[in-house]
Protein backbone atom coordinates (compact mmCIF):
# COMPACT_ATOMS: atom_id res chain seq x y z
CA UNK A 1 0.00 0.00 0.00
CA UNK A 2 2.11 2.90 -1.23
CA UNK A 3 -0.46 5.49 -0.18
CA UNK A 4 -0.39 4.52 3.44
CA UNK A 5 3.37 4.57 3.72
CA UNK A 6 3.49 7.95 2.01
CA UNK A 7 0.98 9.21 4.52
CA UNK A 8 3.06 7.82 7.37
CA UNK A 9 6.13 9.56 6.00
CA UNK A 10 4.24 12.81 5.68
CA UNK A 11 2.98 12.53 9.22
CA UNK A 12 6.37 11.73 10.64
CA UNK A 13 7.80 14.70 8.77
CA UNK A 14 5.13 16.87 10.34
CA UNK A 15 5.77 15.49 13.78
CA UNK A 16 9.50 15.98 13.38
CA UNK A 17 11.96 13.17 13.44
CA UNK A 18 12.37 11.08 16.52
CA UNK A 19 16.02 12.12 16.60
CA UNK A 20 14.88 15.65 17.14
CA UNK A 21 12.34 14.38 19.62
CA UNK A 22 15.11 12.77 21.63
CA UNK A 23 17.40 15.70 20.83
CA UNK A 24 18.49 17.73 23.77
CA UNK A 25 17.56 16.06 27.03
CA UNK A 26 18.23 17.04 30.59
CA UNK A 27 18.23 14.40 33.25
CA UNK A 28 17.29 14.55 36.89
CA UNK A 29 20.70 13.38 38.04
CA UNK A 30 19.31 10.27 39.72
CA UNK A 31 20.01 7.10 37.70
CA UNK A 32 16.68 5.46 38.63
CA UNK A 33 14.52 8.13 37.13
CA UNK A 34 16.84 9.01 34.23
CA UNK A 35 16.88 5.37 33.26
CA UNK A 36 13.11 5.16 33.36
CA UNK A 37 12.84 8.28 31.22
CA UNK A 38 15.47 7.21 28.71
CA UNK A 39 17.94 9.91 29.69
CA UNK A 40 15.68 12.69 30.89
CA UNK A 41 13.10 15.13 29.62
CA UNK A 42 13.40 17.52 26.73
CA UNK A 43 15.05 20.87 26.91
CA UNK A 44 13.20 23.48 24.85
CA UNK A 45 9.76 22.10 25.60
CA UNK A 46 6.84 22.73 27.89
CA UNK A 47 6.63 20.64 31.06
CA UNK A 48 3.80 20.77 33.54
CA UNK A 49 4.03 20.39 37.29
CA UNK A 50 0.78 19.96 39.18
CA UNK A 51 0.51 20.41 42.91
CA UNK A 52 -1.22 17.22 44.07
CA UNK A 53 -3.16 19.12 46.72
CA UNK A 54 -3.51 22.81 47.37
CA UNK A 55 -1.18 22.39 50.36
CA UNK A 56 1.52 20.95 48.09
CA UNK A 57 1.89 24.25 46.26
CA UNK A 58 5.20 25.08 47.87
CA UNK A 59 6.54 21.65 46.93
CA UNK A 60 5.33 22.11 43.34
CA UNK A 61 7.06 25.52 43.13
CA UNK A 62 10.23 24.00 44.53
CA UNK A 63 10.18 21.05 42.15
CA UNK A 64 9.49 23.40 39.24
CA UNK A 65 12.51 25.48 40.24
CA UNK A 66 14.63 22.30 40.38
CA UNK A 67 13.64 21.41 36.81
CA UNK A 68 14.25 24.97 35.61
CA UNK A 69 17.67 25.11 37.28
CA UNK A 70 18.69 21.82 35.68
CA UNK A 71 17.40 22.88 32.28
CA UNK A 72 18.84 26.39 32.37
CA UNK A 73 22.52 25.44 32.82
CA UNK A 74 23.56 28.69 34.51
CA UNK A 75 21.60 30.89 32.15
CA UNK A 76 19.05 33.40 33.44
CA UNK A 77 15.56 32.34 34.52
CA UNK A 78 12.27 34.14 34.18
CA UNK A 79 9.66 33.41 36.82
CA UNK A 80 6.16 34.64 35.98
CA UNK A 81 3.55 34.21 38.68
CA UNK A 82 0.18 35.75 39.32
CA UNK A 83 0.55 38.54 41.84
CA UNK A 84 -2.04 37.27 44.31
CA UNK A 85 -0.06 34.05 44.84
CA UNK A 86 2.15 36.13 47.14
CA UNK A 87 -0.77 36.21 49.56
CA UNK A 88 -1.43 32.49 49.21
CA UNK A 89 2.01 31.05 49.75
CA UNK A 90 4.27 34.03 50.25
CA UNK A 91 6.46 36.04 47.91
CA UNK A 92 9.54 34.55 46.28
CA UNK A 93 12.47 34.95 48.62
CA UNK A 94 15.89 35.62 47.10
CA UNK A 95 17.85 34.23 50.04
CA UNK A 96 15.71 31.10 49.86
CA UNK A 97 16.40 30.70 46.15
CA UNK A 98 20.12 31.07 46.89
CA UNK A 99 19.81 28.45 49.62
CA UNK A 100 18.06 26.21 47.12
CA UNK A 101 21.01 26.37 44.72
CA UNK A 102 19.76 29.09 42.39
CA UNK A 103 21.31 32.47 41.78
CA UNK A 104 18.81 35.22 42.63
CA UNK A 105 20.77 37.70 40.51
CA UNK A 106 19.91 35.62 37.45
CA UNK A 107 16.19 35.51 38.07
CA UNK A 108 13.75 37.94 36.58
CA UNK A 109 10.39 37.90 38.37
CA UNK A 110 7.28 39.04 36.50
CA UNK A 111 4.07 39.50 38.46
CA UNK A 112 1.14 39.98 36.08
CA UNK A 113 -2.32 40.45 37.54
CA UNK A 114 -3.97 37.55 35.76
CA UNK A 115 -3.33 34.22 34.11
CA UNK A 116 -3.47 35.73 30.62
CA UNK A 117 -0.61 38.01 31.65
CA UNK A 118 1.39 35.07 32.96
CA UNK A 119 0.97 33.26 29.64
CA UNK A 120 1.97 36.34 27.71
CA UNK A 121 5.05 36.93 29.87
CA UNK A 122 6.04 33.29 29.40
CA UNK A 123 5.48 33.66 25.66
CA UNK A 124 7.82 36.65 25.61
CA UNK A 125 10.42 34.75 27.64
CA UNK A 126 10.10 31.72 25.37
CA UNK A 127 11.00 33.90 22.40
CA UNK A 128 14.20 35.17 24.02
CA UNK A 129 17.06 32.71 23.44
CA UNK A 130 19.20 34.40 26.10
CA UNK A 131 16.90 32.86 28.72
CA UNK A 132 17.71 29.40 30.01
CA UNK A 133 14.28 28.47 31.31
CA UNK A 134 11.05 30.14 32.29
CA UNK A 135 8.72 29.19 35.12
CA UNK A 136 5.08 30.12 34.94
CA UNK A 137 2.87 29.69 37.93
CA UNK A 138 -0.89 29.66 37.38
CA UNK A 139 -3.62 29.24 39.96
CA UNK A 140 -6.76 27.25 39.18
CA UNK A 141 -7.96 26.58 35.65
CA UNK A 142 -8.25 29.91 33.84
CA UNK A 143 -10.15 29.99 30.56
CA UNK A 144 -7.23 31.50 28.70
CA UNK A 145 -5.11 28.45 29.42
CA UNK A 146 -6.44 26.02 26.84
CA UNK A 147 -4.91 23.52 24.46
CA UNK A 148 -4.16 26.26 21.96
CA UNK A 149 -2.32 28.39 24.50
CA UNK A 150 -0.15 25.52 25.71
CA UNK A 151 0.52 24.47 22.12
CA UNK A 152 1.65 27.99 21.28
CA UNK A 153 3.98 28.04 24.29
CA UNK A 154 5.35 24.63 23.34
CA UNK A 155 6.12 25.75 19.78
CA UNK A 156 7.78 28.97 20.92
CA UNK A 157 9.89 27.04 23.39
CA UNK A 158 10.89 24.46 20.78
CA UNK A 159 11.98 27.21 18.42
CA UNK A 160 14.14 29.10 20.90
CA UNK A 161 15.29 26.23 23.11
CA UNK A 162 13.95 27.91 26.24
CA UNK A 163 12.55 25.27 28.58
CA UNK A 164 9.18 26.17 30.02
CA UNK A 165 8.00 24.78 33.35
CA UNK A 166 4.37 25.46 34.10
CA UNK A 167 3.38 25.12 37.75
CA UNK A 168 -0.33 24.51 38.14
CA UNK A 169 -1.86 25.02 41.55
CA UNK A 170 -5.36 24.15 42.67
CA UNK A 171 -6.02 22.55 39.30
CA UNK A 172 -6.86 19.05 38.10
CA UNK A 173 -4.67 17.71 35.28
CA UNK A 174 -6.21 18.52 31.92
CA UNK A 175 -5.20 17.91 28.32
CA UNK A 176 -2.39 20.09 27.08
CA UNK A 177 0.48 20.13 24.62
CA UNK A 178 3.05 19.64 27.37
CA UNK A 179 5.96 17.28 26.78
CA UNK A 180 5.64 15.78 30.24
CA UNK A 181 3.24 16.20 33.12
CA UNK A 182 4.11 15.63 36.74
CA UNK A 183 2.16 15.58 39.93
CA UNK A 184 4.14 16.68 42.96
CA UNK A 185 3.52 16.32 46.68
CA UNK A 186 5.73 17.15 49.60
CA UNK A 187 7.49 14.16 51.12
CA UNK A 188 8.90 13.67 54.57
CA UNK A 189 12.62 14.32 54.36
CA UNK A 190 15.39 12.16 55.66
CA UNK A 191 16.00 13.67 59.04
CA UNK A 192 19.46 14.86 59.90
CA UNK A 193 20.99 14.44 63.30
CA UNK A 194 18.86 15.52 66.23
CA UNK A 195 15.71 15.20 64.19
CA UNK A 196 16.36 18.23 61.99
CA UNK A 197 14.44 18.41 58.71
CA UNK A 198 16.67 17.24 55.88
CA UNK A 199 17.03 18.05 52.21
CA UNK A 200 13.92 19.00 50.23
CA UNK A 201 12.06 15.81 49.35
CA UNK A 202 9.34 15.29 46.80
CA UNK A 203 6.88 12.57 45.95
CA UNK A 204 6.57 12.90 42.20
CA UNK A 205 4.47 11.00 39.74
CA UNK A 206 4.85 11.02 35.99
CA UNK A 207 1.27 11.46 34.77
CA UNK A 208 1.89 11.69 31.09
CA UNK A 209 4.81 11.69 28.72
CA UNK A 210 4.68 12.57 25.04
CA UNK A 211 6.53 9.45 23.99
CA UNK A 212 4.09 7.26 25.87
CA UNK A 213 6.09 6.26 28.94
CA UNK A 214 3.92 4.57 31.53
CA UNK A 215 2.95 6.54 34.65
CA UNK A 216 5.42 6.01 37.47
CA UNK A 217 6.04 7.39 40.90
CA UNK A 218 9.37 8.38 42.39
CA UNK A 219 10.55 9.77 45.65
CA UNK A 220 13.39 12.24 45.17
CA UNK A 221 15.55 14.50 47.26
CA UNK A 222 17.07 17.69 45.93
CA UNK A 223 20.77 18.27 46.45
CA UNK A 224 21.36 21.97 46.05
CA UNK A 225 25.16 21.66 46.01
CA UNK A 226 25.26 19.61 42.82
CA UNK A 227 21.89 20.87 41.51
CA UNK A 228 20.72 17.32 41.09
CA UNK A 229 18.19 14.91 42.43
CA UNK A 230 18.91 11.78 44.38
CA UNK A 231 16.54 8.92 45.02
CA UNK A 232 15.29 9.23 48.57
CA UNK A 233 15.42 6.20 50.82
CA UNK A 234 11.85 4.99 51.16
CA UNK A 235 12.17 3.93 54.73
CA UNK A 236 11.34 6.67 57.10
CA UNK A 237 12.37 5.13 60.35
CA UNK A 238 16.13 5.13 59.94
CA UNK A 239 17.83 8.49 59.83
CA UNK A 240 20.81 8.70 57.50
CA UNK A 241 24.10 9.00 59.31
CA UNK A 242 26.31 11.67 57.76
CA UNK A 243 29.50 10.20 56.36
CA UNK A 244 31.76 13.13 57.03
CA UNK A 245 31.04 13.81 60.66
CA UNK A 246 30.10 11.98 63.80
CA UNK A 247 26.45 11.12 64.16
CA UNK A 248 26.28 13.14 67.32
CA UNK A 249 28.96 15.61 68.35
CA UNK A 250 30.51 14.92 71.69
CA UNK A 251 28.69 16.86 74.34
CA UNK A 252 26.11 18.03 71.80
CA UNK A 253 22.80 19.25 73.03
CA UNK A 254 19.51 17.54 72.60
CA UNK A 255 18.65 19.67 69.62
CA UNK A 256 20.58 20.59 66.53
CA UNK A 257 21.22 24.30 66.61
CA UNK A 258 21.02 26.39 63.52
CA UNK A 259 22.56 29.72 62.67
Amino acid sequence: MPDLSALRRAISALERSSACERGDLFGFGAPEIDGALGGGIRRGALHEVYARKETDSAAASGFGLCLALRAARDRPLVWARQDFLDLETGALHGAGIAAFGGDPAKILVVRPGDAAGVLRAAGEAARCPAIGAALLEVWGAPKTLDLKASRRLGLASEKSGVTLVMIRRAAAPEPSAAQSRWSVAAAVSTALQDNAPGRPAFDIELLRHRSGLPPRAFRLEWDRDSLSFAAAPLSRSVAAVPADRPARPAGGGLRRRAG
Partner: peptide, 14 residues
Amino acid sequence: QEAGEPPLRPLQLF
Protein backbone atom coordinates in the same frame (compact mmCIF):
# COMPACT_ATOMS: atom_id res chain seq x y z
CA GLN B 1 26.29 27.76 52.83
CA GLU B 2 27.90 24.65 54.13
CA ALA B 3 27.92 21.80 51.67
CA GLY B 4 25.49 19.01 52.48
CA GLU B 5 23.22 21.23 54.52
CA PRO B 6 19.57 21.57 53.58
CA PRO B 7 18.34 25.06 52.63
CA LEU B 8 18.08 27.16 55.76
CA ARG B 9 15.96 29.88 54.21
CA PRO B 10 12.48 29.32 52.78
CA LEU B 11 11.74 29.62 49.09
CA GLN B 12 8.68 31.73 49.75
CA LEU B 13 8.33 34.32 52.47
CA PHE B 14 5.16 35.82 53.90
